[in-house]
Nucleic acid binder design. Structure first.
Lengths: 341, 341
DNA sequence: CTGAAAGCGCTTACAG
DNA sequence: CTGAAAGCGCTTACAG
């Protein structure tokens, strides 16, 4: 079928095309009679304005891009839900990209989104390799906000938790329970967020007089299978750790799966701490002890700051750099260290 | 900053704007020399073609809409991941809407997406109330595909599991384990998918000579809290069920959470069956018995069929209606019925 | 209040 | 091979 245009509406309503456009835009000085006639025709025809043409003229699309590491990870899914719903309320729609944590995909996603002329982009899981690219976008005045990632430079907007402190909280908690061999499943160190979680872990251990054992640290991609099999191997060792801190709740679930496959009891045989506090963590059947990122707040703020950047480009003098406080959520997956045989 | 146009590129390269456009479109009859000159300028300037303007001319946006019930539910998140990644490979981007399972939002999302001139829409969780709207879109030749929903009419494309059979498999499994009081947490009956799961449950029980007890059936919205508190109440009753079938894995997790909060052991005190087979279901720490939807296959097929509809509108004579076979995945949350005291 | 016309940044038929 | 020009469906300054 041929799509209807304002021209068609105008012809049938017996007015000019520009008048139809004015009605659509709630232009105030239109005779009531004219407005009603036009509206009636629009209704009758089921006309929907072409937002693409409108975007071309107005030089804005009312779309934003959301680039996620992996949307099947509840951390990203829950983030996406908050962002999408709030965006919708503010009359923006959201184009979602899934990078699978691959740098090439990140770069490609940014380029495609810019081609699609989105008004701004929220970016998760940005690796340090992309500092230059982000900086350039920022300098060009293009609204970009890093979510749960930061870069060590001034010219960039981000919202992130104090990851170092979060990791320290986790370590403190486990030390307090008597654990002395605590492993760390880290994400890739190219991400500042995961890098800092590992640093916090090391520093807190050091501050308490413990040596760092490299065998207890796993620097992996975010692959369920890799984490799963590393954990199994680790837990079968003679000097296995009695506790594991994972760099995300998703990773913690892989750890729990691996431990369960070895018939280990949680937390009697092994304590596990995650990071994020996805909704499932507080489900009593799971009861995952974790470091809360205050995801709802973080994602809501991210969206609102981005929209602010979009709608107040001129005034935006300073970069937006927000740090959130981590919070330890103690649940069922951590307990006293088992008496060593 | 002012955005660069093909006009700018042309001026600098010393050719006409149309030549730049031809280079961009890989038009074959361009002198090699000219092409290289243009490409060099594009590269140097960091020019990105305006896809909005292109869409206006070509009457297609290379965008599709994906309307989800609730993306924080892993069923939808995992679906979205497959669809988004495959779409990206096929050079489409995906605008995601989250309806929160509200009919008004569904309708609004469809309208907004049509305004944005997406090339097609994948729709989940369509209630029967929307039969007319979908039919109309379909009749207008607009590519729409229902995912995990079906409507009882010819003029609509969908991909769905045999839900009735899936529910029957769950009931058979539990009857085989000796359960006689089996509850059903249903979704809203306005969705054909959940409606049929409830029907299958009733029919299989009836076929085996059991009466249907209305008190054991909960027709709720997809609200975690409601399901959680209903389940708690149900499990405190004197004649409590020994098994519960939930209409989704997400709901099953709410059930498990409620049971755990009452210190019930799974499956010793209570057996639980879900629906979907989200990835978490096969995690050994959870081990949720469920009816597999073959989500990866279902979502991949959905996307590919939609793109087919988009790119072969003319030939698309018949509606696409695909039914998938359910499969029972037996794990740790189901076991023999407890001996009744 | 309302119409005619220019312009947003592209593609592509038409000429040469 | 390449340029000039029309046209995609809107918005909005300019006139009246």
């Amino acid at each position: 079928m041929k799509r209807l245009t304002t021209e068609d509406v105008a012809r049938i309503a017996g007015v000019s095309q520009s008048t139809v456009s004015r009605v659509l835009n709630d232009y105030p000085y239109i005779k009531k009679n004219t407005r009603e006639k036009v509206l009636a025709v629009i209704e009758e025809l089921g006309f929907t304005r072409d937002e693409i043409a409108r975007s071309l003229v107005e030089k804005r699309t009312k779309s934003i891009g959301l680039i996620l590491g992996s949307i099947s990870n509840p951390f990203f899914a829950e983030t996406a839900e908050v962002i999408i719903e709030r965006a919708q309320e503010l009359k923006y729609d959201v184009i979602v990209y899934n990078t699978g944590h691959k740098d090439e995909n990140l770069e490609q996603a940014i380029n495609l989104l810019i081609g699609k002329r989105v008004d701004g982009i929220i970016l998760t899981s940005v690796s340090k390799n992309y500092t230059e690219k982000i900086k350039k976008l920022h300098k060009n005045g293009f609204p970009v906000l890093l979510y749960n990632s930061s870069l060590d430079i001034e010219d960039v907007n981000f919202i992130v938790m104090d990851n170092n402190k979060g990791a320290r909280l986790a370590v403190q908690h486990l030390l307090g329970l008597g654990h002395e061999r605590i492993a760390k499943i880290s994400g890739p160190s190219k991400y500042l967020a995961t890098y800092e979680r590992t640093m916090g872990y090391k520093q807190e251990l050091a501050d308490n007089g413990y040596a760092i054992d490299g065998d207890l640290i796993f620097n992996s991609e975010f692959s369920y299978d890799e984490i799963y099999s590393f954990t199994k191997k680790l837990l079968k060792k003679k000097d296995r750790p009695t506790a594991i801190i994972a760099a995300s709740d998703q990773m913690a679930l892989a750890v729990l799966g691996a431990a369960s496959s070895l018939d280990m009891k949680i937390p009697d045989d092994l304590s596990v701490v995650g990071f994020d506090d996805i909704r499932l963590a507080s489900n009593e059947f799971i009861g995952l002890t974790t470091i809360s990122q205050k995801m709802d707040q973080m994602s809501l703020t991210a969206l609102e700051k981005l929209i602010y950047l979009i709608e107040h480009k001129e005034e935006a003098a300073e970069s937006i750099q927000i740090f959130l406080e981590p919070e330890l959520m103690i649940r069922r997956t951590t307990g006293p260290a088992p008496k060593q045989e």
